[in-house]
Structures are given as structure tokens and as C-alpha cells.
Design a protein around this nucleic acid. Structure first.
Length: 644
RNA sequence: GCCGAUGUAGCUCAGCGGUAGAGCACUUCCUUGGUAAGGAAGAGGUCAUGGGUUCAAUUCCCAUCAUUGGCUCCA
């Protein structure tokens, strides 16, 4: 007999060789039906794998992320089985689960493949799923595994086996398909009830450009058809909120082939929105002791040689601009920090001056690879809400905490209530990727970790994700559809002060080196606005929205009165439009609703004679009539409440 | 940059080996209308660009450019 400890701490006794499926059965049949896998002593196992010794067991169902991952990984195998059945000779790369669904990288040889093939594959998958084929685990020696896949002609699997230690290799089979796999898998294919192949893309074998490009097929499966339907609805909703679509519809920004790819231009409404964000952050920063600065759009090559960026990223910059006489080279500014470092050196600093906080909405240009561009989220020219804080080593943690406060304040003001933070540290195994001394890295890393802990941020720590010059703290927000976006970032930098030989005079009358903190709560204006658009589906908070109200006269008879109302309202901090088109009121309302204008003021005979306006709220309907002064007051109140 | 898809009117999209269509938007006229589309007429396209095949190409083929889904990268 062996002792099985369950997550609630209870210990049950079972015969050796019991499976976690049987353990589930002993608890309840319903649970047993839903068990996809189990975590045995912290390792995910097949629910059908016998447990031979005392163990801690956690049963994993669909509601568990590990359960979904197991389910989708098994689905990848099932898709592979379908592909092999439909297209004999297909070779298989890897087929992992991803955040939502799975993919499989396959080599179809000369066969042409496109999304037109999806339907027959989906049908085949369902057909095979209904067979309820069990996933069977078979440990195999390295030699036998090599033999098996050599015979099958699957060179990719052989490539994978090469790196695996003998004795740890397992095969999994279901139906007529056998794959190299460490598992685990769901008990049988019958759990998979609904499938949708999402898209097809090229992917290099092992992510290496020099190797063969395989066909990557993305798919998603669910244990219930209704869940697939819900997921597809979510995708539809995401499409409706796509900032590229809304940006066009709401006339916020545009791109032009003639101007150049990846170079967004802000139309009047978008510029108004952006300006409000800039003002908002500037005000908050002024309160936190930041000083606004302005630097030019280009910088001499030497600036970036000094900063180290030239060596590291010179190739990813735009071609240098050369002066004909002096032969100097200038680069379009790819970041603001070197300029700010030079500004720091404008005059000597005392320890009493620090921290010094230079803030700039600095527009920078980076030569992003063409395939990488995407709407406003990946562009070649963008404006960072940048700032560089120069402080004494003993101030780093305190400054860092203040920046965290600022970032969280910004998120709150803009309705991002769910966020997580990621601490990115150096990869201790590969220190050559980074510059700076071990000592400084240790200082910076502990400052971030302590600051985050003292601010009680929920963080994940990831090794190897640090910038080359220092560790960082990145903020991820979750939007209204549950999608994650990386926004703000805070980075500690001991490197640039060194390279630019920044100094301050300490109380000991000796020269010391300040520490630099880079930070951007929005990240970039472009990216932030994109995320904001998708988060609120174009229904911006009232204080940000480009046009807060629109006046809709019933007919031209009321134009004069309507214009007077508009004039009185536009005198204050709110801004609106008037619709004087020769259209019926229903039409004007519809158009205003489509433009997502928060308030509509309808003015006709009744309103004019009583000196009132009739207020209609976007998405809600008629609010009744009031004086324009009352409306103005209500609007201003709403703006203030939402803003802080 | 690489692989796949796409590119037709300002927008959203049909269509086709015989030099183009809808809806919306736009212009003009009629209509003066009370809470999500009033009516009529008109104007608008080198069918992304450049080659090729063909008697004939917007349509088929190739290249380029751009968009897009991925890969890779991200100061």
C-alpha cells in the first residue's frame, strides 16, 4: 500500500500501481470523468500512469491551465494523426500547446498547403476523436527511437532525439500515430469534441533562419462545442475592437505608403486624444519632481558609440545622415537616454541636487524589420513618454518605488485595473550578453526586487529577460477581453552613467557616479493608445474622448439657438460639435452613435422655447432635458471623477 | 528579412480572359423631419506597380511595393 497526499492535505491509502484516474474515481465519478492529467510530486503525469510509491497528487482538469495545456498538446498529436492519414509522407517537427490552443510544425514536402485544407483536416480530427483512441505511453531506448524514426523518415524527430539523454525517451501513440513526446496526455481522444484550425504560417525548424522552413498550423480544440463557439465569439469581439479598424473609423490616425511604412500620422481627433494623455502625464510628473526637456531628433554617431547602442543596434537604425563638408554621421534618435546624459553633464552636480528627473515626450525612430510592423503597436517612428532619473545609489530603491506609484496611478486613471509585473533579471548562465560589472548588476537587481516587494506588487521573475544594460520591471495590463499587453517599463542602468562619465560631488567632496533609471509608464504613445482603443472599444473615458458631445438640431429652424448653446459650452473645458446637416434627427443620432460620441444634445421646438437641451447618452439613450448650464456642470463633474 | 494570404471607388466588399459593380460616404435638388439610416439625381476607378503569356489581361504567370497572419528581432 502507498500513501497519496491530496492538495487539501488529506492522505489516502491505495494499492501500489494505482493511477490518478482511479484515485479520482475513488473520490467521485464526476471528477474521474473530468480528469485530464495529474501532477505527481510536482511533475505532470498521464492520469493513466501507475503510481508506485508514496506521492503527493493533484488532479488536473480543464479548469486548470495545466489541464488546458495537456488537452491542447494532445490535440496537436490528434491533428498530426489526421495530417498523416490525409497526407501520407508528412514529416513532423514539434507540436506544443500555446496560450490558447496548439500548433504543429510540419513538412509537407512538395505539397501545396493552404487554409483551404482546413475543413478536411478538421473533419478528419473529429472523425479520429470519436474513436476515443487511448494515448499510450511507451518508454524506449535511444537506439530504438532512432531506428523507429529513421524507418519512418522523420528527420526532425531524429534531430530532437539527438539532444535527449538515453533512458528518458518516451513515445506516445494514439490510433495509428506515434510521436516522440515526453507527455503527458489526456486519457483518450474522445475528450476532444470541437476543433477549429485558426491559421497557417511559416516557421523555421528550431527557430533558425538558416534551417528549413516548416508549415505551422495553428488550431484550438475544446471539450465542448459551446466553448469553441464562445472562443470564436471572443475573437470576433477582438476584431471589432482592433485599433487599426477603429482608428480608421474614428479618424484617429492613418498610414500612408508615400510617407512610409510604420510611420503613423495622427489625424486631428487622434492628436486631440494624444494631447490629453500627454497633458495628463505631464501634470502627474510635474507633481513628482520631473522636469520637462526637449532634445533634437538626430544625434551624432559618436553619441551612440559612447552609449554602446551603436555597437549593439547600429544595424537596426536608419541609415546615417552625413554632412557633406565635415563628413560627420548622424543617426535618427533611436532613444532619448544619450541626449539626456549629455544634458546631465551641462553643469556639475552636488549630491544635494539628486535625484534629477528629465522627462521628454521624445519621438524616436527604429528600423524595425518590415514583417514586424503592426498598426500602432509596432512602428518605426514613435513617441516615448520617456524620463531618466539620475540618482545616488542610496536613492535607487526609493526612486524606483515612486516610479511604481506613478505607473499604477496612470493605469488606474485609464481604467486598467488588472495588471501584473515582470521582473527581468540577467541570465546568470550567459553573462556575456550583458555589459556592466557583476557588482552593479547585483545592486540593481536587488533594488528592483525590494522595491517591488515593498510596493506589494505581484510579480514574476524571469531570468535572461533583462536589457543588455540592466535589469527591468515591466508592467502587463489585462484588457477588457482578458488579453495581456505589455505597457510601462522601469529599468535600472549602471552602464550609461559609466560610459558618459556622469558624476556628482558627494558629501565627502569626492566624485561619485550616479545611477540612472529609465522609465515610461505608457511605453510609447502609439502603443498605449492602441491598447487603450482595444480596451475600451473606442468608447474612451469622457476626459480623453476627442469630442465629448454633439449638438443635433431637429431642423434648421433651431440652428441659431443650437449655435448659441455650442458657443456657451465650448467656453469651458469641454469640447463638442454641431451637426447642421439637412438630415432627420434619427439619422443624426445614428451617426453620432456610430462615432461613439458620449453625449448628444437634441434641440428642437420644445428645447428652444424652454431654453433647455435634451440629453442623450451614447449607448444608453434619452436622459431627459436640462439647461445647458446643468449639462455642463454634469459633464465637468464626470470628467473630474473619472480622471482621479 | 523569411513563409502564407490579400491588394478593385474615400470606406466595406462583389465580380470577371472580351477594357468594371453594390452598399455606405460625397455633390445637387426635393424634404423641415422628435431619439439608431427620408427621397431622387449626379459625380467618382490606369481594377497596387512593372513585366510576361494571349488576337485580347483587372482576371492567368513572374517580379516589385504595401497590407495582413506567423517566424525571427526589439535600445
Amino acid at each position: 500500500m502507498i500513501n497519496i497526499t491530496l492538495p487539501d492535505g488529506s492522505v489516502r491509502e491505495y494499492e501500489s500501481g494505482i493511477t490518478s484516474f482511479q484515485i479520482a474515481q475513488s473520490i467521485s465519478e464526476g471528477l474521474a470523468r473530468n480528469v485530464l492529467a495529474a501532477e505527481v510530486n510536482g511533475v505532470v503525469w498521464d492520469s493513466t500512469r501507475p503510481i508506485e510509491a508514496d506521492a503527493t497528487v493533484r488532479l488536473i482538469t480543464w479548469n486548470d491551465d495545466l489541464g488546458k495545456a495537456t488537452f491542447w498538446h494532445s490535440s496537436a498529436h490528434l491533428m498530426a494523426e489526421a495530417l498523416e492519414a490525409l497526407y501520407p509522407g508528412t514529416k513532423f517537427g514539434i507540436g506544443p500547446a500555446i496560450e490558447t490552443g496548439f500548433y504543429y510544425d510540419v513538412d509537407f514536402g512538395d505539397k501545396e498547403f493552404s487554409s483551404d485544407n482546413f475543413k478536411e483536416i478538421e473533419d478528419k480530427i473529429i472523425e479520429l476523436a470519436r474513436k476515443k483512441s487511448e494515448f499510450i505511453r511507451t518508454p524506449i531506448s535511444k537506439a530504438n527511437a532512432v531506428e523507429f524514426f529513421t524507418e519512418k523518415g522523420d528527420e526532425y524527430k531524429l534531430d530532437l532525439i539527438k539532444d535527449l539523454p538515453d533512458g528518458s525517451i518516451t513515445l506516445y501513440s494514439q490510433g495509428n500515430f506515434t510521436d516522440l513526446c515526453r507527455g503527458p496526455h489526456i486519457p483518450n481522444t474522445g475528450f476532444i469534441k470541437a476543433v477549429k484550425l485558426m491559421n497557417v504560417a511559416g516557421a523555421y525548424w528550431r527557430g533558425d533562419e538558416s534551417r528549413k522552413q516548416l508549415t505551422r498550423i495553428y488550431g484550438v480544440t475544446y471539450p465542448k462545442q459551446s466553448e469553441l463557439t464562445d472562443y470564436l465569439k471572443l475573437i470576433e469581439e477582438a476584431k471589432k475592437r482592433d485599433h487599426r479598424k477603429l482608428g480608421k473609423e474614428l479618424e484617429l490616425f492613418m498610414f500612408s505608403e508615400k510617407v512610409g511604412m510604420g510611420l503613423p500620422m495622427w489625424l486631428p481627433k487622434g492628436a486631440a486624444l494624444r494631447e490629453k494623455l500627454v497633458n495628463f502625464l505631464q501634470k502627474a510628473q510635474a507633481k513628482s519632481g520631473y522636469q520637462q526637456v526637449v532634445t533634437p531628433h538626430i544625434g551624432n554617431k559618436n553619441l551612440y558609440v559612447t552609449s554602446g547602442h551603436y555597437e549593439k543596434y547600429g544595424a537596426d537604425s536608419f541609415q546615417p545622415i552625413k554632412t557633406p563638408q565635415e563628413g560627420e554621421e548622424f543617426f535618427l534618435k533611436p532613444m532619448n537616454c544619450p541626449h539626456h546624459c549629455e544634458m546631465y553633464k551641462f553643469k556639475p552636480h552636488s549630491y544635494k541636487d539628486l535625484p534629477i528627473r528629465f522627462a521628454e515626450f521624445g519621438t524616436v525612430y527604429r528600423y524595425e524589420q518590415s514583417g514586424e510592423l503592426h498598426g500602432l503597436t509596432r512602428v518605426r517612428g514613435f513617441t516615448q513618454d520617456d524620463a531618466h532619473l539620475f540618482c545616488r545609489p542610496d536613492q535607487v530603491k526609493e526612486e524606483f518605488k515612486k516610479v511604481i506609484d506613478l505607473v499604477l496611478y496612470v493605469f488606474k486613471a485609464l481604467g486598467f485595473n488588472e495588471y501584473t509585473a515582470q521582473i527581468s533579471l540577467r541570465d546568470p548562465a550567459n553573462k556575456t550578453k550583458y555589459i556592466g560589472t557583476d557588482e552593479n548588476w547585483a545592486l540593481a537587481e536587488s533594488a528592483i526586487i525590494e522595491a517591488a516587494a515593498e510596493k506589494e506588487l505581484s510579480t514574476v521573475v524571469v531570468l535572461g529577460e533583462a536589457a543588455f544594460y540592466g535589469p527591468k520591471l515591466d508592467f502587463m495590463v489585462r484588457d477588457a477581453l482578458g488579453r495581456k499587453w505589455q505597457l510601462g517599463t522601469i529599468q535600472v542602468d549602471y552602464n550609461l552613467p559609466e560610459r558618459f562619465e556622469l558624476e556628482y560631488t558627494g558629501s565627502d567632496n569626492l566624485k561619485h557616479r550616479p545611477v540612472m533609471i529609465h522609465r515610461a509608464p505608457f511605453g510609447s504613445m502609439e502603443r498605449f493608445v492602441a491598447v487603450l482603443i482595444e480596451h475600451c472599444a473606442g468608447n474612451f473615458p469622457l476626459w480623453l474622448t476627442p469630442d465629448q458631445f454633439i449638438i443635433l438640431p431637429i431642423s434648421e429652424k433651431y440652428e441659431e439657438y443650437a449655435n448659441k448653446v455650442l458657443e456657451s459650452l465650448n467656453n469651458s473645458d469641454i469640447r463638442g460639435l454641431i451637426d447642421l446637416r439637412d438630415e432627420k434627427i434619427g439619422r443624426k443620432i445614428r451617426d453620432a452613435e456610430m462615432k461613439k460620441i458620449p453625449y448628444m444634445l437634441i434641440i428642437g421646438e420644445k428645447e428652444m422655447s424652454e431654453g433647455l437641451v435634451s440629453v442623450r447618452k451614447h449607448g444608453e439613450g434619452d436622459l431627459g432635458s436640462m439647461t445647458s448650464e446643468a449639462f455642463e456642470k454634469q459633464l465637468l463633474t464626470e470628467v473630474t471623477i473619472n480622471k482621479y
